[in-house]
Amino acid sequence: MMSNVLTDKLFLVLTALLGITLLSWLLTSFVNFEKKSLGAMILLLAFFKVRLIAIHFMEMAKTQRLVRIAFEAWFFLVGGGMIWGYLIG
């Protein structure tokens, strides 16, 4: 029962999410990047995590098409807008 395909997939997603969290923390602490590109990279990783959560945990892919379009639009508009706003500032 515990070795179901779906449960394994969820666990893999969790591992990926934790790994990306660790990566973005390491980026701020140990790597010397230019400030703006580092910030943009962290935001990009954050929105990648957000999409992972939405697709695998929220099961966005299995809902009505309209919901899927609305959520994808949210991710790209809000994520893109934030990175753009951050970079021009």
Binding site: I42, L43, K49, V50
Partner: peptide, 18 residues
Amino acid sequence: HMVDLLWVVLFSLLYLVP
């Protein structure tokens, strides 16, 4: 999951982004 998702963005924005 939404609460989790929003925290992921808040965490990056408030704590990490230089």
